[in-house]
Design a protein around this nucleic acid. Structure first.
Lengths: 166, 166
DNA sequence: ACAACATGCTTGATACTTCAAGCATTTTGG
DNA sequence: CCAAAATGCTTGAAGTATCAAGCATGTTGT
């Protein structure tokens, strides 16, 4: 028992913490909803899928190992499999056997996928900017990034690399 | 045209903004996943459902109009309908006709629902605290709340009250 | 070499969300 | 008073997420 009465009563949130937490929950709820709706309307895909295409477009030959991509996007392998399957149907992405590891698969961004991304990016950036960055001071942008980084770091896998998420 | 080339090229994110945005996306992804998993394991419900029970427990007679509740939780009425239907099966919540408006329904927190909430709250608070507030300075908690509030406010319905979300 | 375990990814069932209707009841405006 | 529009909530279908299993290939240790 590290501190007295640790298992019995938790340390509840202070009023400040409670307010911040509620504000966060509301903001993240509204934001995801907003972006999902915008992207669904303009690109026919949810926000997470858009993020996957972005990661692929950043990768060396527009391709990434499935696990790598899942890790980068902070989603489970299973979720990624389904997502890629869906986008493969649309022709935005293609699977490719990995040369060095017969178990491995690469997700490859197709020309069509790249085009969709290019056509969609402006609207998406504008949505993000309008919802967030046009409303914050440069200091707040900085603070926001630092805080989110701390939270993200705290939730990353503790050990060296995988098991990772599950 | 308020600024030159406004419709053609959007103002892309600066490097700072890009970093903050990526950090946010990762943090919110990991956080939702973390809390959903914790609550699903310990309480058999996703985070959003937990939030609904909390709102109900805060309400005057442990009851709220459906639309009110949806608005408070920042979800659509449709989503709420399904959620309440699910929790009604579990006996955590009960529907009740609204006396003054025959179209209206009240969602009412049952004793069983309250108990589930009480049993689950400590673990949830601990998870939130561990993931966020134990890692931030008081100043950062303050900043975090202010920033999230700004974002949330910017995404609220513009007009007086509803149409709200759709 | 081989058994045991680890890794990489997928699958199918179930749960949840979204979207577009839809029904019933107010409210509005002539 | 009535028709038209608005409000309150629900429904079913389709899309996406989660979970537990599963198959195939790689790696480890003896």
């Amino acid at each position: 028992m590290k501190t007295p009465s640790d298992a019995d009563e938790p340390r509840w949130l202070t009023d400040d913490e409670q307010r911040s937490w509620q504000a966060y929950v509301q903001a993240s709820m509204l934001l995801e909803d907003h972006l999902d709706r915008q992207l669904q309307r303009d690109a026919g895909m949810p926000h997470v899928y858009y993020g996957l295409l972005v990661k692929l477009s950043w990768a060396p030959r527009h391709r990434m190992r499935m696990t790598e991509l899942a890790e980068a996007a902070k989603i489970t392998r299973s979720r990624l499999s389904h997502a890629i399957a869906r986008m493969e149907k649309d022709g935005w992405v293609r699977r490719e056997d990995c040369p060095d590891d017969k178990r491995g698969q690469n997700a490859v961004l197709t020309d069509k996928g790249l085009k969709v991304l290019q056509d969609t990016a402006p609207g998406h950036v504008t949505a993000v900017r309008t919802a967030i960055f046009d409303r914050l001071t440069p200091e707040q942008v900085e603070q926001f990034g630092a805080i989110c980084q701390i939270i993200a770091d705290g939730l990353q896998p503790v050990g060296a690399d995988l098991p990772w998420l599950r």
